[in-house]
Amino acid sequence: MNNKGSILADMTQFIPRFIFLVIAVVCLVVFIKGFIVVNVNVQDAEEMVLTNRLLFSPTAISYEDEFRSYPGTIDLPRFTSEHLEKSTSYTNSNTFAMKLELLKTNGKDPYPNSNTAYLHQTTYDKLEPLARTKLPGSGSAKLYERRMYVTVKGENRYQQAVLKITTVIANS
């Protein structure tokens, strides 16, 4: 009876030791896992490349004559969602989206006779509210906003404007 009681007392005393062992092992595993990088996060680079692609590509929104394209000069007839989808077509449109707006030089009022152009509008409507929450995690998204001065080529006339590009990229 005494031996049984002694073993029981020992077992009770070993519970804190066992908990300490588990904590030490968990710390060790977390420490080792911290050094192992498998995922590569390229969201920032992806946003930059996509923006530059829309601005510089001869088939995107830039004005192009028979000789060359003019980065920084927006061809107004090309500034449509349909044209964007045609010039930058992804097999999976659920991972990112872009919204392009032309504004007057004050940066607030919309540029006359211009539409808001979207790349993957459905995805944009889905991801933008999530990105605004700034919540981390794979279910959310990251939002980037850029404004730049551009020249808009309308019908036989050039005008200054502000191009606002909002990009949302899903966290993965």
Binding site: S87, S89, T95
Partner: peptide, 9 residues
Amino acid sequence: FLYGKDADQ
């Protein structure tokens, strides 16, 4: 990883 195709290129 995906890249964007271009109908004109």
